[in-house]
Write a protein that binds this DNA or RNA. Structure first.
Lengths: 230, 230
DNA sequence: CGGTCACTTGATCGTCTTCAATACCAGTGG
DNA sequence: CCACTGGTATTGAAGACGATCAAGTGACCG
């Protein structure tokens, strides 16, 4: 395992609360791990014995119904902090999309660390708040937006981070993931993307690469302030 | 304002982290308030200058789209802690359903208190985690459950707290609130409730009072493990 | 090349929404 | 006591949106 001092996401993650001089303690309880593409590394049914910090890669977080219907509740990437649970088990499953590297912190030992570095709890609370706000926005999307509005919202949200040129970005997740994130079917997602292309709202460079062509129109659509074609 | 020592929800709320001997400090920064039925007491557009603790009554928390479509993200009642935000503004609006009494804590002053009583931050984190888990469950409902499954899930969730006799409880919120919480229309909620009644799954005592008659069947339905009629 | 898997496209179907009345209930004033 | 009124709830009929079902395409890889 690489030492925490060399961790690329330390400053942006909850670990940033630990001063440089105490990184040795952090490293002492962090257990590095790796999950190959498609691999489950948190299972909804597992006892919630640890917290996770993603250091690189992208993961999908989801809940399942008994008949395999799936709702993706979010995507995690470098810097994401996972594992907040309230019962004895995790509330969701996590699967690697590409290769995911993470640090695993046993709950009890992290608790000791939090005790010594209250700043860490502050960061965890901040992370939870951020997540809560994002998830509330997603509830608005799932409960009240049309399919077109959902896809538009998704594209705009994705265009924020990790752009190459402005409005040009990669979707690491498959169509099925997007569908299960937006509460739609694969076919509907595909059809709407194609429609956006013919309407000159976006450019589909290839299956996993998109370029926004009319961000203003997409924004109107995503916010639901579109007159017709809601 | 009544003193914190007499507060009925103190132990169950974040304020429970403050020892009896320091309640005077807590009372010093808490500003009591009251919201009449139907009144807005947190607006999504307002700068997030304070946290709220509901001491009695029930409130709906929601987000709006420009064309007035509404998604209720949750209901708050005695002991609920509100106001976690990440940007300068609140992430949602809050409206009283019946008469709501609350305590308002200016952000800066609460921060001082948290500094002196780290247990308070722990409680806030716990509250945020609980909320996060509930909201993820709701995303599964909104994204992947059928209308029948949604209503069944809602009834079961409501039957947990505040029952008179087992499975017999009051819905303080109107049909429109239920619809906007479940991502459905009023008509659909009404139709499904009536259908549940004719199927002997529930009893509708009156508009706002329900009695579960076949909790097992409802549970099967809510979890999506129903063979037909998903 | 043959196989697999994800993506794409088309045709049909069903669930829930929308639109439109109507019923109900509490509060008000005649 | 009983119209009257505003709001919520309920019920019915028609329609739309997205799902489902079914092929077909393309890329990657053995």
């Amino acid at each position: 395992m690489r030492p925490c001092a060399a961790c690329g996401v330390r400053q942006t993650s909850v670990c940033g609360a630990i001063p440089e001089t105490d990184l040795i303690r952090l490293a002492g309880i962090a257990i590095g791990g790796i999950a190959r593409p498609g691999t489950l590394f948190i299972a909804e049914t597992d006892p919630a014995t640890a917290f996770f910090n993603i250091t690189s890669g992208a993961a999908r977080l989801y809940k399942l119904l008994p008949d395999r219907r799936r709702q993706i509740t979010g995507f995690a990437n470098g810097g994401s902090f996972l594992g907040l649970a309230v019962s004895d088990n995790y509330a969701f499953s996590a699967e690697a999309i590409d290769t995911v590297r993470y640090c695993r912190f046993p709950r009890a030992r992290l608790r000791e660390l939090i005790h010594d570095f209250p700043l860490m709890e502050e960061r965890m609370l901040k992370a939870a708040s951020t997540e809560l706000v994002a998830v509330q926005e997603q509830m608005l999307l799932l409960g009240r937006k049309s399919a077109r509005e959902r896809v538009a919202s998704f594209l705009l949200a994705r265009s924020g981070a990790g752009c190459q040129s402005p409005g040009h970005f990669v979707l690491p997740m498959a169509r099925g993931d997007i569908a299960d994130y937006l509460g739609l079917t694969i076919e509907t997602v595909v059809r709407i993307l194609r429609r956006f292309r013919t309407e000159r709202l976006i450019e589909i460079v290839n299956t996993s690469e998109v370029m926004l062509r009319d961000e203003v129109a997409l924004r109107r659509l995503a916010d639901g302030s579109h007159p017709a074609r809601g």
